[in-house]
């Protein structure tokens, strides 16, 4: 799949859809999770079958079998030795398998990004190797393939959980804390994520997108993150006069609001409304006119006061923010 910055693959054609694929790892930080999940699932099934077999013996077995099942030896083996050995082994193996997942320190080899959960969307702050902020965006993370990405996960309000199943584990965003998580994609593509901790209202509509590029594509994407300057026109005028700028930033314009997602490059996002709608002129207009019908109780008001002509002018302006 060729991914150019600004190419508008729809959410479903991205091959991920909803819910995000699990059991389908696409990188070294997701693989151990999947291995462990399969081991638990299959092991659990085997133990369940054993218990059912024992129940069968207890109910329908011959008197001799029943006596052996209820004997002291069976209880020592089945009730004590077996669980102790299996659970201890599982604990040690699980900890070893997943030890690479928790990013306890910064090695300098990773790309660094801070992601802040909001009710019900995500701030994405790209950082340099020293952890200084270099670029602000929202709801979509662009990464190069084959390189670990160290995420610093925070929240602005309640507990959220960051989860992009094909690229890594699941990590809570807890008020007052910075949690770290490593993710990595081995192939270019679009990977879907989802808030995995109930955070009120439209929690189920709090999605996320990771776009993984080849090294050259990533460099091109990075170079394209400069705001269009000096643009005037009806779309921008309406954006400023309708109150949008109180909540949204568009770099290079007087719009510097912080309550909602940064819209400097909103036209280049794959999705709108935090991973829930494809991004095209139609969904843009629909979101602006009545985001409440689409994502009930989200924090952007509906704009019924815009005329058809005004609505199209504002959305057309935003669609062009590549």
């Amino acid at each position: 799949m060729i991914l150019r910055p600004g190419s508008s693959l729809s959410v479903t054609s991205a091959g991920s859809g909803w819910p995000p694929a699990v059991f389908d790892p696409a990188g070294p930080y997701s693989e151990p999770v999947t291995t462990l999940a399969w081991a638990l699932l299959l092991g659990g099934t085997a133990v369940f079958a054993l218990v059912l077999a024992a129940l069968g013996v207890a109910l329908f077995g011959s008197a001799a079998l029943k006596a052996r099942l209820g004997g002291e030896k069976a209880i020592w083996i089945g009730g004590f030795a077996f669980p102790a050995v299996v659970l201890t082994g599982l604990l040690i193996w699980g900890l070893m398998l997943t030890s690479s997942l928790s990013a306890t320190r910064v090695t300098g080899a990773e790309m660094r990004v801070k992601i802040i959960g909001e009710m019900w969307w995500w701030r994405v702050h790209y950082q340099d190797a020293e952890g200084r902020e270099t670029l602000r965006d929202a709801n979509e993370l662009h990464i190069p393939v084959g390189k670990p990405v160290l995420l610093e996960l925070e929240t602005a309000d309640v507990i959220h959980s960051f989860w992009v199943p094909r690229l890594g584990g699941k990590m809570d965003m807890i008020p007052g804390r910075t949690n770290r998580l490593l993710i990595q994609a081995d192939k270019p593509g679009v990977y879907k994520g989802q808030c995995a901790e109930y955070c009120g209202g439209p929690h189920a509509l709090m999605g996320f997108i990771v776009v993984a590029h080849t090294a050259e594509d990533f460099a091109r994407w990075k170079a394209s993150r400069v705001p269009a300057r000096g643009e005037q026109g009806r779309g921008l005028e309406l954006f400023l006069s309708s109150g949008c700028a109180a909540c949204h930033t568009i770099r290079g314009t007087p719009a510097t609001g912080l309550a909602g997602p940064d819209l400097t490059h909103v036209g280049s996002r794959q999705t709108l409304g935090a991973g829930i709608l494809p991004n095209n002129p139609g969904t843009m207009a629909g979101w602006i006119a009545d985001a409440q019908a689409i994502k009930p109780a989200n924090r952007m008001p509906a704009y019924h006061q815009l005329s058809a002509e005004e609505l199209l002018a504002v959305s057309e302006y935003l669609v062009r923010r590549k």
């Binding site: 095209n280 139609g282 969904t283 207009a285 629909g286 009545d290 019908a293 689409i294």
Partner: peptide, 19 residues
């Protein structure tokens, strides 16, 4: 294409746009 962002569509549960 997300036509549901503005329209209620027959047989499609979400979204049900009202614009």
């Amino acid at each position: 294409l997300g036509c549901g962002a503005c329209h209620e569509l027959p047989g499609i549960d979400w979204p049900k746009g009202r614009i």
